[in-house]
Each structure stands twice: as structure tokens, then as C-alpha cells.
Nucleic acid binder design. Structure first.
Length: 216
DNA sequence: TGCCAGGCCGGGT
DNA sequence: ACCCGGCATGGC
């Protein structure tokens, strides 16, 4: 079932070249900054950090939280997110000598548990880091994914994050490239056809999968 | 002009 | 194990 969704989306849109980011660390920063925030607001924050040479692990670790907060202001929740960036940097130093390469060599489940213990890293952020920065085969469940599943009666609002993640991971081969493309494609259709209001699925390529009763 | 956007934390039940 | 208020900006 989900495999057919993927085939349909890939035929319609092709490869998405995700995640936008020039380095693994930049991808991680983006994952934290985009929490409940539109990507355009995050882009400004990231270019500010780049301009100030703060898009590296050691630089984030050294920077004062107030300075960080000022530079990422446009991404919203900026004091919280400044603290989260520091917490992640400290985590990598404390556990992996400041090396992302070492960090991502850890077994997927072990690293996932460690990431979830870091302040500011919840399930979606942990999985985005694992998949998009680390190429580990975990499926990311975000607001778009959940909305798609609910619109298609494949999930209900009470389903937990872990339940939805396991739905994807048991239905598909554990292939990071596949998970990457699939999730990116879900976000793409979500942005174009599946917003909260203005739900016109008329030209959505997934329209044929909609249950008859829910067709608009 | 209010509502929304690729969540998460901490305290309460 | 859930539930909820707080966190904050920029675009429409």
C-alpha cells in the first residue's frame, strides 16, 4: 500500500534532493530550527550563522547563548532553540569527542535513544538527524506525514508517533535513500495539496487512493 | 488581523 | 500514560 504511494509520488515528481544543507551539521541545525516553524524563517537564521562562521560544532559550543539567540531570531522560539543547539553540541563532545562521524557510526537504536535524551530533541528531530544527516534508515513522521495518513484513513489522530513510524518501517525495506525520498515527496504533496485549510485534492497525484467517502 | 508553520519541554492529572 | 500552556517569528 505505502509502496504504491511512493511509486505514484516518485513518478509524479521525481527525486527531491533532500535535505537542503551543505553539511551534515547544517542539516542538524536546520532540523532543530525548523521545529514548528516554516522553513523560510529558518533559512534566514542559517545564513546568519554561516555569515558569522557559526555553522560548525566547535563554534556553536563556544558561542554565548545570547549571541546565538540573536542570530537565529527569525526562526522563532529563539532563546529555546539557542539552548537546544548548545545542548546538541555539548552532547557530541561529551559522548563522541566532538565528532559527528563517530556519532553516526553508532548503532541506529542506541544513537536514537541517546539523541532523545538531549534537551530539545524529540522523536521527529532525532529521526530527521538520523535519516537526513546520518543516512540511518529511520522514517520521519512529521505534521505532513500524519495529515496524509489521516486524510487517507490510514491513521487516526490518537495514533502515537512510534506507531506511525513502525507502520512505515515494517511496510518498506530499510533503505535510507528510499525513506529520504519518500518523506521528502510527502512534504512536497503536503505543501501543495494537503494544507490545513484549502484542501483541494483535485489535482493531487494521490487522489486515486482516497477512500470514496472522503472525496471532496 | 488572526492563524499557521516540517515540535518539544515541564508540570500536572 | 496523556494533557496542556509556554515558547516567538514572519507570511498570508
Amino acid at each position: 500500500m505505502l509502496k504504491e504511494y511512493y511509486e505514484t509520488l516518485f513518478s509524479a515528481y521525481g527525486p527531491q534532493h533532500w535535505w537542503p544543507g551543505r553539511s551534515r551539521f547544517e542539516v542538524i541545525v536546520g532540523a532543530i530550527l525548523t521545529q514548528n516553524t516554516s522553513w523560510t524563517n529558518v533559512e534566514r537564521a542559517i545564513s546568519n550563522l554561516r555569515r558569522e562562521k557559526l555553522l560548525t560544532l566547535p563554534a556553536i559550543r563556544r558561542a554565548r547563548p545570547s549571541r546565538l539567540a540573536q542570530l537565529i531570531r527569525s526562526s522563532g522560539y529563539f532563546r529555546q532553540k539557542a539552548r537546544k543547539l548548545k545542548a546538541f553540541a555539548n552532547f557530541v563532545y561529551a559522548n563522541y569527542s566532538g565528532s559527528l562521524t563517530r556519532m553516526f557510526r553508532a548503532p541506529t537504536q542506541q544513537l536514537r535513544h541517546q539523541l532523545l535524551a538531549v534537551h530539545g530533541i524529540g522523536p521527529e528531530t532525532a529521526d530527521s538527524i538520523l535519516l537526513y544527516a546520518g543516512r540511518h534508515p529511520v522514517f520521519v513522521i512529521d505534521a505532513y506525514t500524519r495529515r496524509l495518513l489521516e486524510r487517507h484513513s490510514l491513521a487516526s489522530p490518537s495514533d502515537s508517533y512510534e506507531h506511525l513510524r513502525s507502520l512505515f518501517e515494517r511496510s518498506l525495506p530499510a533503505d535510507h535513500q528510499l525513506f529520504n525520498e519518500f518523506h521528502a515527496l510527502i512534504v512536497h504533496v503536503g505543501k501543495n495539496f494537503c494544507r490545513k485549510s484549502a484542501a483541494d485534492c483535485h489535482s493531487c497525484p494521490l487522489r486515486r487512493f482516497l477512500p470514496l467517502a472522503t472525496l471532496p
